[in-house]
Design a binder for these strands. Structure first.
Lengths: 215, 215, 215, 215
DNA sequence: AATGAATGAGGTTTCATTCAT
DNA sequence: GATGAATGAAACCTCATTCAT
């Protein structure tokens, strides 16, 4: 419960939520994440939250609104550091090498992603089926991240630190590897033993140098 | 319809399916893929297939059996070339470089994956929620592929064509990038314009050399 | 039950209704008529019909569709004799006086209206709230009846048997009195004692001569 | 709002209503009239009134009490002039002809009826379903009006101004026509164009002389 | 083999009403 | 007096599954 409240703080601290609302959100996240949105029943969520079923619908007009209200804040939270003014200037100054930049970004967002893992899971599960989520995701995350990240990539390309592949491809491949690691690590095979720091290092190394032997 | 029948041939040719069964499977694949398993109703599938609701349950005892009967064959089909005897010897002889091997593997399985895309989508959507599927997937695909692929990787490492990272990490990173491309290309953003051949080339290049400039 | 089935025969004989469907309709008519559409629950109707609640929704997609499917046939049935070809010619020949015509019309439709009384009640209760019913009513009943009746009225006016008031006003006033009688007789005060033949005679007399004393 | 307040003054001036109560009543009348009592929700009324849901139940114990508190005053208001002492003497002196009497009565109550139309609509809609209202209506309106009106009719019959039909029939037919006009005019087809004065004249003419040509 | 009417459990949502603040 | 969060019963409706034909 403590951990869930911490997670809620991260996602929802700005809103003033009543006690019951918090319980509903925690229960909904847990249920959606375990069984998927469509297979979760509001009655089950209500029971798990210790709340009358009607209470859910007093706060969220529909079940889908409950879903969106859970997933949407994650998106804005996730891109938060990217919408800080003068983002790239800061980056240029702070990180001399791409490795440092990658390591900082991964560290920076990893905590959030891990803590939000159930919500992240819900988000990726439902994006293919919920047009609202898809639009929000494209609007908030894809446009923002890709725009900003492409600028950063161009900067490093001009410094001669990255190859001349189109920035959007570099962005796609890089993000794929970061999410792919997290996905394997925390969603597909969480029960295997992982040396996180080592795997992150390997992922960064892979992104930078591939797996081919330089000779 | 012709395309769907072709797809069925690929997946189900060994079974003798009646005409109605084929229609049911085609309709189920389409519906599960569009709306997800839990959000698809058997009545909708029956309507789309042009059969009576009862007919579905004559062939598949439950809705879940219908799901499994659709997804399971894909897994065996997918790993088919890997279970051929002397798989790695064949590989060793045929491919002198890792690039060639990767290109061949991607080309070889890509057609199947793309043609089966709706089924692939269903598979990945439902694996987290259906223990039966998860077990089958781990047993058939993960163990088989990783075992075999690790052997191949070791072979190339001995030839000095791959870096000394542990084989399972190389496998993970490589597969992540291939699936990551297919996922972005066909599931997340199928409506964007893609130059497939080019992106595959870039993915292979990325796997081999990363994005850092060699100097 | 026998009477309800007779009523159903009148209203629905052309459709092939299953046994359960008939029971649903009978129960729905009874319930809607007693409590009003909005205050009737589908579960109550199902219980009264001796049917599972789901069965109602197999035949009628929504509760409103059930309402419409009950009321709509009444409208077409009611105007049936008016859409017979050469309606007015027949009338002209058969009835020399307006009184005879009125008496014939009242007799002719009265049976139907009385037998259908619960449905008639439902219809008038719901027309103000259900746009679908209102439109159907205007389209089928008002346009048809008024058009035809106005022709008849003009015929009698040309013969010098009716005063020169505009036909639509004569129609409105006449219909008002017929329905007003039936409404008072069967809906407002059914428990009072009525001499039907006498009241009909008085209503006709009233329509023809008013209540003012001719001197 | 001004018009609604005027209407409220007419109906409710004797009670000391708080500001919120007035808003609740106005909102309830509007909602009940538009959608019917059973299909109106207290939450919608509260929203429309700009008060909290609980506030309604502070003033009216149940939803039905709210209904009754709206409709009941109309009944007493409506029969007000009829319960004035020496009603018929006054009438006898003032109106030499039945036409004048009818015209005066219609004019006199028409304003009230039109202004109160939403409440009238509610009243007629709900009388068949609410025993309380039905009893009140029978007690206050029917008995009072019929008793008094029959006396008036007998007076005119003795003067030789009305035919010898039983007074209750004359009353029924007359009232039918007046209400029938108002019902058609304001409830069934309010959107059609009407020449009110003309229709009233025709209704009076019809009541007095019918539609048969005197020859 | 195929149908489709029927089921009843369970889904989401609405609602009148209560009560702590 | 007023609020509005909370309730839980009941509303409408959906659905996987069964079974007589």
């Amino acid at each position: 419960m403590t951990e869930e409240e911490l997670m809620l703080q991260q996602l929802f601290d700005e809103d003033k939520l009543t006690d019951k609302q918090k319980k509903i959100i925690v229960a909904a996240i847990e249920t959606f994440s375990e069984k998927g949105y469509a297979a979760s029943s509001t009655s089950e969520i209500a029971k798990k939250a210790g709340v009358a079923e009607g209470t859910i619908f007093r706060h969220y007009k529909t079940k889908k609104e409950l879903l969106v209200s859970i997933v949407a804040p994650l998106m804005t939270k996730f891109i938060a550091p990217l919408v800080v003014k003068d983002f790239n200037k800061v980056l240029d100054r702070e990180f001399e090498t791409v490795e440092e930049f990658l390591r900082a970004m991964i560290e920076n967002r990893r905590d959030l992603l891990i803590r939000m893992l159930p919500v992240v899971k819900i988000m990726f599960q439902e994006i293919p089926f919920q047009p609202e989520l898809r639009e929000q995701f494209l609007e908030l995350v894809v446009k923002n991240i890709f725009n900003r990240v492409e600028k950063v990539i161009k900067g490093y390309q001009e410094k001669g630190l990255l190859i001349d592949m189109p920035p959007e491809s570099i962005a796609r491949l890089t993000i794929t590897n970061i999410l792919g690691f997290l996905f394997s690590r925390y969603i597909l095979f969480p029960h295997l033993e992982w040396d996180d720091e080592l795997e992150i290092e390997r992922t960064i190394q892979f992104i930078m140098h591939g797996v081919g032997k330089k000779d």
